[in-house]
């Protein structure tokens, strides 16, 4: 059986500015993400990582090319449908967590599902399930200011997962975490992906984080320069990423 394509990008071009002062950020990206993939996108500053993520997450629009999410061409859907697509099919994890400080972790996690009109019982059930999986069961009653950075980011990931989105876009999710918290989070993401619960696209500058993914795409000057796939060992995968990074040069931070 053919694998289900969650994201399909063909010849994606993005330019900024007018004719006289045109900046070509993305110069023709082709990328396919299949269900339950865990992809990392790496690249030096200015390589177009954020632009690619913004277009995939429907916040920005491409100049040329097609972007399909779960079989739907983004250029052919109305604004209202885009909003619905973002709500139902995409989950977001940000570098700075973006949990709402006005509510408890439990309410934060349940928020997208309850706003989508799911029954309260389902919201509670799924929140508990995810909290258990991410080791947050004892922290549900707490407010964000009472949680550590790692706990907050795991909470934010639970929030992204609760609506069972087709894909999760994680923008530097470990950027603000210490190494222990980063490892915990990445283990969770890996488990989620391997458990068949989600497809993840993670943008990161950190080779260690990238080494948790199945495939790493290196972006440079608006083009995908290479794709590195994980073998048996994560350690060996990590070394290969670092080697490629060194050979390509540039500031990956």
């Amino acid at each position: 059986m053919e694998e289900h394509k969650v994201v399909e990008v063909r010849n994606l071009v993005k330019n900024y500015g007018s004719k006289d002062f045109l900046t070509k950020v993305l110069k023709g990206i082709d990328l396919t993400i299949y269900e339950h993939d865990f992809i990392a996108v790496m690249g030096p500053s200015g390589s177009g990582k954020t632009t690619l993520l913004n277009i995939l997450s429907t916040i920005d629009t491409p100049t040329q090319g097609t972007v399909m999410i779960d079989g739907r061409d983004l250029s052919r859907v109305s604004n209202q449908e885009l909003s619905k697509l973002r709500r139902d099919k995409i989950g977001f994890v940000f570098q700075d967590y973006n949990l709402l400080d006005t509510m408890t972790l439990e309410d934060n996690i349940a928020l997208p599902l309850s706003l989508n009109g799911a029954s309260a019982k389902l919201c509670m059930q799924k929140t508990e399930q995810l909290a258990l999986m991410f080791g947050l069961k004892d922290h549900l009653e707490k407010y964000p200011y009472q949680l550590s950075g790692g706990q907050k980011q795991r909470g934010a990931t639970c929030r992204a997962l609760i609506t069972d989105p087709k894909i999760i876009f994680a923008d530097e999710p470990t950027g603000a975490l210490d190494s222990k918290s980063s490892r915990d989070l990445l283990e969770c993401l890996k488990a989620v992906s391997e458990g068949g619960r989600a497809t993840i696209l993670m943008v990161t500058h950190d080779p260690f984080s990238a080494s948790y993914a199945k495939d790493v795409y290196i972006l440079k000057d608006g083009l995908i320069q290479c794709r590195i796939s994980r073998g048996e060992s994560r350690k060996e995968f990590y070394d290969r990423i670092v080697d490629v990074q060194t050979s390509m040069g540039g500031d990956f931070t």
Partner: peptide, 14 residues
């Protein structure tokens, strides 16, 4: 929570 997780309540009540 049965009351809170209805429509936008979770947001504005908090």
């Amino acid at each position: 929570k049965i009351w809170l997780y209805q429509r936008q309540r979770s947001l504005w009540v908090n």
